[in-house]
Nucleic acid binder design. Structure first.
Length: 473
RNA sequence: GCCCUCAUCGUCUAGUGGUUAGGACAUAGGACUUUCAAUCCUAGAAUAGGGGUUCAACUCCCCUUGAGGGUACCA
């Protein structure tokens, strides 16, 4: 069929709402497939529904796709970049296409009113299908509004081969005379997508499986035009954690939600790509190149899948740990106005494995975790930790710690000597846990964090003694 | 109602007639340890049900059930 043809795929969203993760995954698969095949990925905005068109949704959509790194490689030029194709710019093309079908006897004018249609219980009754052409001309001339409908075959069956599911056959009697061109002269999805996929030379249509039932209609349209059909591959849907439709009510559902929650774009891409696809081995944490290199359509499986945010969280942690320490160090420098690169790098290496969430829009976790390295705590904020670790003998222990740390020459205030100092304090039945946790509370204001020796080393002798001496609590 | 699609641990999956049904997340336990993470180790956990086909079915066929989708001048 078309194995040797250039691979050209598209993501074709309708700008009616936020980009949910199901849509994002469809975009990802199109993108990965294009890259894997050395083909072209383009973006087409299907804005043919004037009532549901949403300007804000369009802006979000473009922002989210770019944020995910799913850049398209073709389109009308906009300020030196490729823009998306807009169906609303191509009305003439669809109008001509509809006329072509009328001329070929595959479509007809329908003058039925909405009121009449509503009285029909079992779909359109093909009332206008056989109107004489003089009658049609007369109605048009008198200004009667009309739609253009496809003259769907009544006999026979239509079949197509879905890439993942194989042959799907539909009796033509189940297909109605669908509207091609609406009363407002805008095309319906069916006409517009077929016409565009043809003229834009789309080789593979990778789209959500809610389109399976409509595909026979599209096949019939291709045939009526005399066009070659692309390969159809319908992708499974993503369900909410407990099953059922994904929705804001059931938690984060849009790409924007996950950005605000602190997920890295690549973590989201990696995770979403694995929802319904696997590269064949046990690899899960992958770079974009690895994903591209191992991506094939036949390793997608057709089952609807549930979204598991816990695993996304894990994936985010994995991707965070893959980023260089310097990435976080630079963020710390900006965040706290710190000019010691060395200090920020040390802190970054301690905090990185502890971070769950982080992206360029979400730094609050890093900020919270790194706070005491730059600002001395004013009180012990963590009441629970205080109740658990602050004991009556704590002040006394801190006195000993202060004394031992004080003996370390300032230029030798390092992990090794700090540890020795603590061990010296721990004689008899004094437990290291009690000493260390009391020190941690006073120095950091919280009960949990990186190793205490590391924290003290970074703070430096002077600052440590100051904080311990203050003895909060 | 009618039509279509799908079905392996709680979740994501490997598997393509003969396997102790493997991995990952989550869960539980352990190691490490000054805390919290990270990391490592261990454990429990699945072929939806019923019929066939076959020497042999998770795997092929049929039915049921369940889930999802379509049935728009929405996409």
């Amino acid at each position: 069929m078309s194995q040797t043809k250039e691979v050209r795929v598209r993501f074709a969203p309708s700008p009616t709402g936020y980009l949910h993760i199901g849509g994002a995954r469809t975009a990802i698969y199109n993108y990965l497939f294009a890259k894997a095949m050395g083909g072209t990925f383009y973006l087409r905005i299907e804005d043919t529904d004037r009532k549901r068109y949403n300007e804000a949704a369009l802006k979000d959509l473009l922002r989210d796709l770019k944020w995910l790194g799913l850049n398209w490689d073709e389109g009308p030029e906009v300020g030196g970049n490729f823009g998306p194709y807009f169906q609303s710019d191509r009305l003439e093309i669809y109008g001509n296409a509809a006329q072509e079908l009328i001329d070929k006897g595959h479509a007809y004018h329908c003058f039925c009113t909405e009121e009449r249609l509503q009285t029909l219980e079992h779909g359109y009754d093909r009332h206008c299908r056989e109107l004489a052409s003089e009658e049609v001309q007369a109605k048009i001339a008198s200004g009667e509004k009309f739609v253009i409908r496809f003259k769907s075959p009544i006999e026979g069956t239509t079949k197509f081969s879905d890439y993942l599911r194989g042959e799907i056959e539909t009796p033509n009697k189940d297909l109605d005379d669908l509207v091609l061109l609406k009363r407002d002269k805008f095309p319906t999805y069916h006409l517009a997508s077929v016409v565009d996929d043809h003229y834009m030379r789309t080789s593979h249509v990778l789209r959500g499986d809610e389109w399976i039932s409509s595909t026979p209609k599209h096949i019939l349209l291709y045939a009526a035009f005399g066009w070659e059909t692309p390969v159809f591959c319908h992708l499974p849907v993503i369900l909410a954690q407990g099953g059922g439709k994904l929705s804001k009510r059931k938690g984060a559902a849009s790409v924007g939600d996950f950005r605000e929650l602190g997920y890295l774009p690549h973590a989201l891409v990696n995770f979403l790509s694995l929802l319904g696809w696997n590269p064949g081995g046990d690899r899960e944490v992958m770079s974009l190149d690895e994903m591209i290199n191992s991506f094939t359509l036949d390793r997608i499986h057709p089952k609807a899948v549930a979204f598991d945010e816990k695993k996304l969280e894990w994936m985010n942690g994995q991707q965070i740990r893959l980023l260089p320490d310097s990435y976080f160090a630079e963020e710390l420098e900006k965040l706290w106005g710190e000019n010691s690169q060395k200090k920020c790098l040390s802190i970054a290496s301690l905090l990185k494995p502890r971070l769950k969430f982080f992206n360029e829009n979400y730094i609050s976790e890093l900020k919270e975790m790194s706070k005491y390295f730059f600002i001395a705590p004013q009180k012990i904020e963590d009441e629970k930790a205080k109740a658990k670790y602050w004991k009556t003998e704590s002040p006394e222990l801190l006195g000993k710690v202060e004394h031992e740390l004080g003996k370390i020459p300032i230029e030798n205030f390092d992990i090794k000597n700090i540890e020795t100092a603590f061990m010296t304090v721990c004689t008899g039945d004094i437990k290291l846990g009690d000493v260390a946790q009391a020190t941690r509370l006073v120095v950091s204001g919280v009960g949990a964090g990186p190793g205490l020796w590391e924290i003290l080393e970074i703070l430096g002798k002077e600052e440590c003694l100051k904080r311990i001496g203050q003895g909060l609590c």
